[in-house]
Design a protein around this nucleic acid. Structure first.
Length: 394
DNA sequence: TATCATGATTCACT
DNA sequence: AGTGAATCATGATA
């Protein structure tokens, strides 16, 4: 049985006086057994190595959570280690105190034995009392340790079982990504990690509140499905974020234009300018045609020498220069935003119940998102299933 | 307290 | 393994 104060091992200094018997007298306490078993199971008692990881894994398995538990695990382990340390420190203190007290009593008895006869039975009785007293103290320690572990564990589980809303900033970051990648809202593993990191940095939900990659995945899963289910409901939100990112895109593009003009002063007119007057076209249709031409129908598979250079990117889209290779993330985001902004300025009425302003260009006929890596997935910004430009023009 | 919003879970599918 | 869809469970709000 672990953790019981074994005075025998420490009482060699009690010359001549036997102090055995205390434990033999006590029947095994079932409650103490339970506490010991639990502490062992939780990795608080027992061998130091790997303490708590099994329990954390068990807790994770019990919660049925996804694979991305490393952060929670390390959190859990760290706290369990803390509890473990406190437990062992206290235990040691109690052992020491018990020994010291026993020694002290022994010395007293020894002194008394000069003036009166002291039977071994009396000594045993005294030692028994001391041991029982310290055992009960130990029991309390074990009990409170168990409680601490239970609390930690329940918190660990609750954090995953209970739903907690993300902070506004975190939701904003996720939404910004979603709406600026609306044509293909499937962040890569790296992007998810990046988002999780970004959200966790920005988030101030309190101690230990991080957003994990699986939470990002959950969020995008939910978002995609809910967006698709009721695009109209998300119109306003989409407009908001598109406008937001459009500002960034415009800034980036303006900077890019400046750059490129500095490099080549004789910019051809066919170049893409981030100015409204460049899009002074008659109808939404023509604007969308322009866009369709610009993107050659691809929802975003083009090769960029410099993903941040909007102007050069657009020029490189002419002809067959796009390769269907890796999408420049920044430009893709800007492209999505621009599509939205352009469709937004195409004369649709905001008052029309909201299912017209932001056409779900990223959705294909089956209601699924186009695969951005498939060059054949030609889709016009407003030619998706939710496209209602013909309706709204009436 | 009813209702909606939303994060998490489950399951089937590819 | 990643995703869509359905569903659950809880938080927020009117």
């Amino acid at each position: 049985m672990l953790g019981l104060v074994d005075v025998h091992n420490h009482s060699s200094s009690n010359k001549g006086l036997s102090i055995r018997g205390a434990q033999e007298e006590d029947p095994p306490d079932p409650q103490l057994m339970r506490l010991d078993n639990m502490l062992l199971a939780e990795g608080v008692a027992g061998p130091e190595k790997g303490g708590g990881s099994a329990a954390a894994a068990a807790a994770a398995a019990a919660s049925g959570g996804a694979a991305d538990n490393s952060i929670e695990h390390s959190d859990y382990r760290a706290k369990l280690t803390q509890i473990r340390q406190i437990y062992h420190t206290e235990l040691e203190k109690y052992e020491q105190a018990c020994n010291e007290f026993t020694t002290h009593v022994m010395n007293l008895l020894r002194e008394q034995s000069r003036t009166r006869p002291i039977s071994p039975k009396e000594i045993e009785r005294m030692v028994g009392i001391i041991h029982r007293k310290f055992s009960s103290i130990q029991m309390q320690l074990k009990q409170s340790t168990c409680e601490a572990v239970m609390i930690l564990r329940s918190r660990f589980l609750d954090a995953r079982r209970k739903r907690r809303n993300f902070s506004k900033q975190a939701t904003e970051i996720l939404n910004e990504y979603f709406y600026s990648h609306l044509s293909n809202p499937y962040p890569s593993e790296e992007a998810k990690e990046e988002l999780a990191k970004k959200c966790s940095i920005t988030v101030s939900q309190g101690v230990g509140s991080t957003i994990t990659v699986s939470q990002v995945s959950n969020w995008f899963g939910n978002k995609r499905i809910r967006y698709k289910k009721n695009i109209g409901k998300f119109q306003e939100e989409a407009n908001l974020y598109a406008a937001k990112t459009a500002v960034n895109a415009a800034h980036a593009a303006a900077a890019a234009v400046q750059n490129s003009q500095a490099n080549s002063p004789t910019t051809p007119n066919s170049g893409f300018q981030m100015k409204d007057e460049e899009f002074q076209l008659d109808s939404a249709e023509s604007k969308n045609t322009l866009l369709s031409n610009m993107f050659t129908g691809s929802s975003g598979s083009f090769n960029l020498p410099n993903s941040g250079d909007m102007f050069l990117s657009m020029q490189s889209l002419n002809g067959d220069s796009y390769q269907g290779a890796q999408v420049g993330a920044n430009v893709q985001s800007q492209v999505d935003t621009l599509r939205h902004v352009i469709s937004q300025t195409a004369g649709y009425n905001d008052a029309l119940g909201g299912n017209t302003m932001y056409s779900p260009h990223g959705l294909n006929a089956n209601g699924g998102w186009q695969d951005a890596t498939t060059p054949s997935s030609v889709i016009s910004p407003t030619e998706g299933p939710g496209s209602v430009h013909s309706d709204t023009s009436n």
